[in-house]
Design a protein around this nucleic acid. Sequence first.
DNA 1: TTGAAAGCGTTACCAA
DNA 2: TTGGTAACGCTTTCAA
Lengths: 340, 340
Amino acid sequence: MSNENKLTLAGLAKLAGVSTSTVSRALKDNPLIKKETRDRLQALAAEYNFSLNHAASRLRTQKTNVVAVILNLDDETDQSISDPFLLKVVGDLNQVLNKHGYELLLSNSLMANDDWANYYISSSRADGIIVIGQGKSTQKIEKVAKSGAPLVVWGDPTTASGYSVVGSNNELGSFLATKHLIEANCRNILFVGDPEHAEMSERYKGYKRALSDSSLEFNPNFTLSCDITSKDAYEKINDTILAKGLFFDGIVATSDMVALGAMKALKERYINIPSDVSIVGFDDIAMAELFHPALTTVQQDTKSAATIMVEQLLKQFKQQSADSVVVDITLIERKSVRES
Amino acid sequence: MSNENKLTLAGLAKLAGVSTSTVSRALKDNPLIKKETRDRLQALAAEYNFSLNHAASRLRTQKTNVVAVILNLDDETDQSISDPFLLKVVGDLNQVLNKHGYELLLSNSLMANDDWANYYISSSRADGIIVIGQGKSTQKIEKVAKSGAPLVVWGDPTTASGYSVVGSNNELGSFLATKHLIEANCRNILFVGDPEHAEMSERYKGYKRALSDSSLEFNPNFTLSCDITSKDAYEKINDTILAKGLFFDGIVATSDMVALGAMKALKERYINIPSDVSIVGFDDIAMAELFHPALTTVQQDTKSAATIMVEQLLKQFKQQSADSVVVDITLIERKSVRES
DNA sequence: TTGAAAGCGTTACCAA
DNA sequence: TTGGTAACGCTTTCAA
């Protein structure tokens, strides 16, 4: 029964001997319709395996019940769709969206090239947009915001912006991470990450603040700039040690993937973790506790984050204004930092 | 300019002083329309930031240009959306689909409860369905197949089925993995995974074949049944060693995540990998080479797989029949198996 | 409590 | 090479 005339609302109405309006309402459980009629029609629909044509509904109601989720990856680097943290956020968003009756249209920043609002909203592909990651440039995001399209961004909520940003307190997270290392008697702490990246720059600040709080001196030579990938971290750590020897005893990594790459480089040189070098990550991906040693890291609560992001988006659907909100972070102490 | 009357095709036509048919055709670059007219209208559309209402197109053409991708997870276990391999497949599918002008609607098996064909296809939410994972039961999948909806499944292509299945040669992969261990002089090889699971049962067969090929005896006590998660693998390995001691010198893991969990358990007991126990995984997730020791594993080529899956789906859109196809696997030798 | 009918914005057939 | 027009299948206002 693949392609022959699909049963429509009108067809069902005819079968039932009522009008399309009645069926439409009955299927939506509209109390306007007498309970018995509703029940009868719903049963009939079930019997005939009827399903509404969503395209027609959308056209009529001007509502898609779809949310576009855009993985905003930097084009050059290959953080790519393989970053487990980003994908976890997508997964959690999917769950929450489904619960609210919305579907998730997955997109990467490569498609719909420039004008996201136009591509997704004006063309009624989606009712709203969630962008994951502020990346290095927020141009495209601001364009969406300006268009007035419902928008929520996963990023750093503490920096001011004209749109709703949900994210962790990156500065605090990194501050706690660094402080934890200092308390474990690390004195030469390397920051590994990309300070130009929105969220990462906040983490950089937290790192600096922790240093100065403990009256340790900030030294720019202890900043190792690298992409948010294991591979790049691995290579950069290797290069650094090769060039300058092991001049650090602690690492603040801007993500667990970065930490993982760094750990690999260290292990290959038989540098002991945590006794020679302690390390703390960021994200708390599922694998963090499976590393050896288990990775001490700053946990981002993606479940709550997803819930909040969807809430903020739904608000905008109701013409209410949305806020930026900070999600709690927690330092998860495992085995990659030596006992203090 | 968020909500005031959006420019429609009719509006644009009026602006240009032509009919809607002409604009519609011009925007599709239909050669029926004179080149100059086409150019003029396209320029105008760009100028006014016009975008087609997709919902209307869909209703009219009965085509959505959307493919629903369903992560078919076993409800009970928490393989969940966090499995990096599954998510990689989703990512790769997204890329390929986009290239062909399709969008990816992400779904988990929890929604659209029973009747996927009805939910996605009849309701014109999507033109086709890609199911990732056959799981333990193929009921829902078969229901879709029976409905005649375009369908491709990521799973084990060697077992017969009435629909198109794309996947690796799981039996061969596991055979090679086991053989590799045997050549490294492992004599007591544990199989860790879930033999009831479609793909995994094929891997189980490969494991057995490799044993008998080397005239090693298959011993059911060397089958450790566990979920496809690190956590479960970790616990099961722990329990086993606790109960029976270290009675094995090799592990064939049904996924890298399982291997990772097993490795953690071994390391915690100071069992050396690879000299005491050698281990080989399956999937070759991005992190495999970052483990310590770097994980020897059977690589599944998700990029080709995604390409092939989309090809097979597109075929069905054109009313052609689709086949099951086997994707090549490769044993990637790293450091978790001792030198032979 | 139910029905008639207009209309959402396209596309494609047929006519010019 | 272009235009008029019906139709896709639903929702909702207004009337009964």
